[in-house]
């Protein structure tokens, strides 16, 4: 038994016939071919698979593809516009917010949600905000710095940022 779904991923509409049990993360990785979203635990505990579902961060290993039918998904591949990295991506790069990089896409998408709702977070707000995402490499300190760096960039107009590059 399969079900037809239409899911918009990073602005591209994708139609597929899927098993009802297919996880959204597997839809993204296998059907859409977007492997930037990683599978770290399959139990929604590590956050490596975090994507935006209609703008809110969700763990795509515990969302079914059929639940995303008719909705908008943003993955890490959808953040940059061409060569222009998103401010959060720049923040992670500049502050060494990643080592092995496996948690990074989820961490970036989670930070996206955080900054959307708290444009100017304190260190402890950042730590609370990303506590559903696990990183084993960094001890989180540089991730906190990366999110702060991004918050500062995002509070400046885009043109000024591009000019500064």
């Amino acid at each position: 038994m399969t079900k037809n779904v239409t899911i918009t991923v990073n602005g591209v509409e994708r139609r597929a016939s899927v098993e009802p049990r297919l996880l959204l993360v597997h839809f993204l990785r296998e059907n859409a071919g977007l492997t930037g979203t990683h599978v770290g635990c399959e139990t929604s505990l590590c956050g490596a698979c975090t994507v935006l579902l209609d703008g809110r961060a969700v763990k795509s290993c515990t969302v079914l593809a059929v639940q995303a039918d008719g909705r908008n998904i943003t993955t890490v591949e959808g953040l940059a516009s061409g060569d222009q990295l998103h401010a959060i991506q720049e923040g992670f790069w500049e502050e060494h917010g990643l080592q092995c990089g496996f948690c990074t896409p989820g961490m970036i998408m989670c930070s996206h949600d955080l900054l959307e709702h708290h444009p100017n977070p304190s260190d402890s707000e950042i730590r609370e905000g990303i506590n559903g995402n696990l990183c084993r490499c960094t001890g989180y300190q540089h991730i906190v710095a990366a999110v702060k760096n991004a918050a500062q960039k995002m509070s400046r107009p885009t043109a000024a940022r591009a000019g500064a590059r």
């Binding site: 930037g36 993955t75 790069w93 496996f102």
Partner: peptide, 21 residues
């Protein structure tokens, strides 16, 4: 110095073993 390996990782376009098809 910022890392040379980061751009592919922060864009989600690097390849871990499970990403191979």
């Amino acid at each position: 110095m910022k890392r040379k390996e980061d751009p592919r990782m922060i864009r989600g376009i690097s390849h871990y073993t499970d990403d191979l098809k």
